[in-house]
């Protein structure tokens, strides 16, 4: 199917986003290409239709923010907060992602082929994130639900104050945050990992090469003896 093209060199971002907010039935199945993004912020935010959007280049802050249903591909890199608070759909960054990738996302799948910066998956609330490279420090801070898969390394304080999210890391973890601990890879977790590796183009990667981290659940209810951990 032929793509509808918007060139941000000569089109207002507002015009593009408002087009992408048209009724779902009108947009469903359409392919939209946004060229010359040149790091513009807030591209393809608030989508709520099964539309395929390609951002052809580098995106600024909050690309595909609060995404619902749509498939958004960034052919370059994405700045802070890509797919923040995503509810459903797929966001695929072929380059690197900056800080807070997938922050608070509740559903859907965020795929980052390269590295992700600090606080990847912060306050994750149910979405899945697969990072082909490494993630920076404080990733999955206070992550409540969902899964973070990291094929490379994790920085400091991984999973600090974690709730119920699962963290799969293949490489080294510089340090674990408060209340985050390594868990035995149970079958349910392994199945989730295998599925996410397949969906994100990493089907060939051995799931048994990952370690699983989760919450030790010692901070779930405040107790003065744990004050030093906060």
């Amino acid at each position: 199917m032929e793509s509808l093209k918007f060139d941000l060199e000569n089109t207002e971002l507002r015009t593009v986003n408002q087009y992408l907010h048209r009724p779902a039935a009108e947009l469903s199945g359409k392919n939209v290409v946004i060229s010359n993004p040149n790091g513009a912020h807030n591209i393809a935010v608030g989508l709520n239709a099964e539309v395929n959007v390609t951002i052809d280049g580098h995106a600024g802050y909050y690309a595909a923010g609060m995404n619902q249903l749509a498939t958004v591909t960034v052919t370059g890199s994405a700045s802070t907060g890509v797919a923040e608070n995503m509810m459903s759909g797929v966001v695929h960054v072929k380059g690197f992602a900056s800080n807070a990738a997938g922050a608070t996302a509740q559903g859907g799948l965020l795929i980052i082929d390269g590295d992700a910066g600090l606080r990847c998956g912060i306050s994750l609330k149910g979405a899945d994130i697969v990072v082909g490279g490494s993630v920076g420090s404080f990733s999955a801070f206070m992550a409540q639900a969902g899964n973070l898969v990291v094929l490379g390394d994790a920085g400091e304080a991984l999973g600090d104050s974690l709730y119920e999210a699962r963290l799969f890391v293949r490489g080294n973890v510089k340090s674990l945050g408060a209340d985050c601990e390594e868990k035995e890879m149970d079958q349910e977790s392994r199945n989730i990992l295998v599925d996410l590796l397949a969906k994100s183009g990493h089907a060939e990667v051995d799931p048994d090469s990952f370690k699983l981290f989760g919450s030790a659940r010692t901070l779930y209810n405040f107790h003065v003896d744990n004050a030093g951990a906060y």
Partner: peptide, 20 residues
């Protein structure tokens, strides 16, 4: 979780405006 200073706040407000 996804912004820190006043410059970021400007982008965040713009995002909320774009979404709505």
């Amino acid at each position: 979780p996804d912004w820190t200073g006043p410059d970021d706040l400007e982008i965040k407000i713009a995002e909320l405006r774009e979404i709505t």
